[in-house]
Simulated assay, not measured.
Amino acid sequence: MSIQWNGVMPAVTTKFTSDDKLDFNMFEVNMKAQLDAGVSGIILGGTLGEASTLLEEEKRELVKHTVSLTDGKVPVIMNIAEQTTKGAILAANKAEQDGAKGLMMLPPMRYKASDHETVAYYSDVARNTSLPIMVYNNPVDYKIEVTLDMFEELLKFDNIQAVKESTRDISNVTRMINRFGDRLKILSGVDTLALESLLMGSDGWVSGLVCAFPAETVAIYKLAKAGRIDEALKIYRWFLPLLELDINSLLVQNIKLAEVATGIGTENVRAPRLPLHGTERERVLAIIEEGLRTRPTLPNLSAN
């Protein structure tokens, strides 16, 4: 299965039981909601997936189970967030063996690599996997920016194909299109800039709040791409207070609480994370409850 690198690709949460095991029953409920809404890929093992807390065997089990659940309907993409080049290559190879069809890949973790080191890191992984790669470019959170000059070198590899663009600089979309055209597919990685990014020419949206609101997220994407901007804006303006729950250090807990409210998740997180409590929990619940109270009726997406 080739990856088109467009549409809405949820960075899904990992579901846990109350006794801290993988909860594949609730995961299946969420996957059905995502697929029914029309997402174009499933991304595992990101920040929302609590990958840093998952055991190696759990990651592999998660990939295999998701491949089985999706049954070829959409590609399964595994995030690579490793401290060493050797570890990244090994993780990429395991993901491929387990049935993943693509990789989302962060720069080296914990070590602030230079531009040269970062290019070498991505290049070495690209040489050692046949899977297509989406570079996760998030200098705000991970302190390393993959610049346009660095992409110029990386795009010599046919399997480096896309970027999850999370610089927060919306004009970077235009810079990338001007420089690389269709050679580099661009997916917005910031929920609160997603519509703006799509209107500037991004191919897709790697979303967080889609985990709780898949139909609304896909509707915004489809309406924007169909030129039905006013309809997309109406939903997006309703959605923004919820989308802001994603640009927060407690994004995992926030989004899992939203999944509970929409009936497609649980609050269970893995320690040291803990569910929200106190005034912060009440604040987030109020945002979610207002979103549910004012939830829009979605337009006919097949209408001309």
Rank of each mutant, 00 (worst) to 15 (best):
I186C: 11
I235M: 06
E196Q: 15
L187E: 07
M134Y: 10
R237N: 14
L154P: 00
K164A: 04
E231C: 03
A212C: 05
L193T: 11
S197G: 13
A232C: 08
E153L: 04
A224F: 02
V135D: 04
I177K: 15
T167V: 02
L245I: 01
V218E: 02
V190P: 03
N248A: 04
S202P: 06
A224I: 01
K234D: 11
A212W: 08
L209D: 05
A232V: 06
N137R: 03
F180H: 12
T147Y: 07
G208C: 10
K234Y: 09
L154Y: 11
E152N: 06
E216C: 02
Y236N: 15
M176F: 13
S166I: 05
V163L: 05
L184H: 11
V210R: 08
M176D: 07
G201Y: 07
I170H: 10
E153Y: 09
M200G: 02
D246Q: 10
L250F: 12
V206L: 01
A224C: 03
S197D: 10
D169C: 11
I170T: 13
R183H: 13
C211A: 08
S166L: 04
D149A: 13
D158N: 14
V140L: 09
G227P: 08
T167A: 05
N159Y: 11
E152H: 09
E231G: 06
L195M: 14
R183A: 11
I170G: 07
